[in-house]
Design a protein around this nucleic acid. Structure first.
Length: 110
DNA sequence: CGTCTGACGCACC
DNA sequence: GGGTGCGCCAGAC
C-alpha cells in the first residue's frame, strides 16, 4: 500500500492552481486526522525524485506561512502571490493567506 | 533499529 | 484579538 508520504504527496499534487490547503486538512484527507505535523515532515523532506509538488499551496490552519522557520517563507509567499492568492493582515512583515477565499474544498468542483 | 524532532493544531487561559 | 502548553506520530539521524 501507499505510504503516508506518498499519500500526502498525492493530495498536495491535487491542489488546484490558486488554491491552498492547511496541513491538518491534508492530514485528514489521507485518513490521519492527528498527523498535521507529519505532513510538514514529508514536505520538509521533499526530494527531486518526488517530481512536481506544489508544496507552497500548503499553509497552516490560520493561513499563516510555516516555512519561514526553514527559510522558505519568502519563496512560498512569492509563489502564492504569483498564482493570484490574496494575503490579509498585511501592514507589517507577517501576512496570512485569505483562507476564506482560497481554501480548497475537494468536494466542490474547483 | 532506537531516539529525537518538529513545514501543526487545538484547548485554555 | 494574542500567548502558552502539550499531544500527535512519520521522518531524519
Amino acid at each position: 500500500m501507499a505510504t503516508f508520504r506518498e499519500q500526502v504527496l498525492e493530495v498536495v499534487r491535487s491542489v488546484p492552481y490558486g488554491k491552498v490547503v492547511s496541513y491538518g486538512q491534508v492530514a485528514e484527507m489521507v485518513g490521519a486526522p492527528h498527523s498535521a505535523r507529519q505532513v510538514g515532515a514529508v514536505l520538509y523532506g521533499l526530494r527531486d525524485e518526488d517530481g512536481e509538488v506544489p508544496w507552497h499551496r500548503v499553509v497552516n490552519a490560520s493561513g499563516g506561512i510555516s516555512t519561514y522557520k526553514v527559510g522558505h517563507g519568502e519563496l512560498q509567499v512569492a509563489l502564492l502571490k504569483a498564482e493570484g492568492v490574496a494575503f490579509v493582515g498585511g501592514g507589517r512583515g507577517e501576512e496570512r493567506v485569505d483562507m476564506r477565499a482560497h481554501r480548497w474544498r475537494p468536494e466542490l468542483p474547483e
